[in-house]
Design a protein around this nucleic acid. Sequence first.
DNA 1: ATATATTTTTGACGCGCGTAAATAAAAGGC
DNA 2: GCCTTTTATTTACGCGCGTCAAAAATATAT
Lengths: 335, 335
Amino acid sequence: MDEFAALCGISRPTISKYFNDPNSVRPSTRGRIEAALKEYDYRPNIYAMNQNRRLTKNIGIVVPYLADPFFAEIARVIERRCIDAGFTPTLFSSHGEPGQEIEILDTLRLLRPAGVLLAPLGRASDRKHIEAFCRDVPTILFDSNIEGVGAAFVGSDNFSFVSQTVEYLSRTGSAPCFFEMRDPANPNANKRRHAYLEMMRRLNLEPHLIKIDGTGWGFEEIGRTGALKVLKQDLLPTDTVLCSNDRLAIGVLSACHELGIRVGREEGCTIRIASHDDHPYSRFTCPSLTTAAHDYEAVSDHAVETLFRLIEAGGRLETREETLFAARLIMRASA
Amino acid sequence: MDEFAALCGISRPTISKYFNDPNSVRPSTRGRIEAALKEYDYRPNIYAMNQNRRLTKNIGIVVPYLADPFFAEIARVIERRCIDAGFTPTLFSSHGEPGQEIEILDTLRLLRPAGVLLAPLGRASDRKHIEAFCRDVPTILFDSNIEGVGAAFVGSDNFSFVSQTVEYLSRTGSAPCFFEMRDPANPNANKRRHAYLEMMRRLNLEPHLIKIDGTGWGFEEIGRTGALKVLKQDLLPTDTVLCSNDRLAIGVLSACHELGIRVGREEGCTIRIASHDDHPYSRFTCPSLTTAAHDYEAVSDHAVETLFRLIEAGGRLETREETLFAARLIMRASA
DNA sequence: ATATATTTTTGACGCGCGTAAATAAAAGGC
DNA sequence: GCCTTTTATTTACGCGCGTCAAAAATATAT
């Protein structure tokens, strides 16, 4: 920066000022700087800038598992929003490991981020550690909530998801059973089960929970194995299956195909399958998957906007906001 | 660090030395530091460390499109390897945009990475810019090659992929036509087309290329739309389709299902579909997808190991190495 | 105990930048 | 042209650490 300042014949502090806000210097000065900029392609070192700045332009984005296209997609949208707003996002994935999540938060502190958008692992998360982090760094939780932690939570309204699918399925055919992992790591899964039970109660229908075994993030395989077992033993209490999430449903569809069971609402189909999330691939499954869609855009936008508000407010909001977006039922071929 | 040094009653340079290599200090000193470490959970600021270090422990990982599970998966494996080797990887996605790729490389310089693992966008990449980057930063290209750029390239042998699928398909049924995008962004796609043509020549079979329109990274949708058009107009020259990659194939499968065309090698199926990549979802498609698998592990491991060698060698290798790993044919239900 | 080798400490400088206060220069108004 | 306001410069310090050279302390060998 010293060299560059010399090259444009302007003092370094003025250059520094320019990079913090191009409009804070006189137009003539700005012109000279920008002319020199074209010639000598200099750019300030953002990591050195962050060392002394009162407030950096860094934003941390943390997702639990990036190899899940759902998170990959939401991360992509959020990243873009941050860049467009003049921030420098850095993306981290916990890769499903609580240890990694802790490590990431510890590293993130050193970046001195203006704010963080955190989608926690869920039940596996170290609550105390995340709490401590949120006390020091302005943080918005998204996707999965941890009660009372972070300045705000932005996510989807699980009841809205399940109520729509249950209502639709039971209106157009037999009432659904609920297909889920026995021990789901994600708190949304529990909320969805409760929503299912509540909806069935309201509709005066008998609920059936099918809990399958399996751990980790390989949901498709877990769903497939679980479905094979259930289907082979003919344990399905109804011909309509509502899966907790699309990735499980993808596995169930695969199992059905393997067993020659035709899925859908067409003539000749013996089972209907629906699910939740509107996973990027759910429109390409065979048959395409009837599901309840997240309002990706709304969740991303609102999470980012809330973070910006939080940053501008100096890192504190008056009350902890919880914003939930309703789902949109997507009727496709599977149910 | 000053404070922490005072707390353990040891000088700051010694602490600094400890963090660079715990074994470089006397065991008794090390013991005292580690005891204090437990008590006062201090950790050095990696971004400040990187400012003066001769060689940082940073590694940059750049992929073209993280919402593609193929890259998400490979990034996950590579990240893990780097962490295990004591490095600090930072992951970036170009999100399919050449501008982003340039931006990422420019930002990456500032991190002063010891090395970079770069999977370029391909044809859309700004070759000059990447070349300039590689001159300054030790870089290994992976997945898609840019001739002569970077210290080495690690990828898969496209001929091995296509030769195996073509051989298998033509041996077990009618010879395949080749289904691809008209204007693929990825150089591997071109290599695969050439491999297809060459294999058909060797087997003395007539080649058929089916080129479909579409741009961007939404390959499934492109494949689906293209296949719908081709199938509806009955333009398929043979009952066996070899897709350039699995994501296109997922779209083709979806189109077939939509049109009631049964896919597979079983009785009653009218079309066979095979593909390349062994995408994480290809085992869950309906029917499951016959494909040629990347040796993910080998590519990841070798890329990382080559980078470590490059770093230890001071950033230069004697000659530019190109390592290609053979594919493994995965026979599933679709062909 | 002495000499030698090893480790640690001290002190000082640098990385690339932000920031604050005092001073100097330029712009605008009359 | 002079005065006031705005903007730019100078100077100096700080961030959290690496690194180097010289001096001091400690360990090892004899």
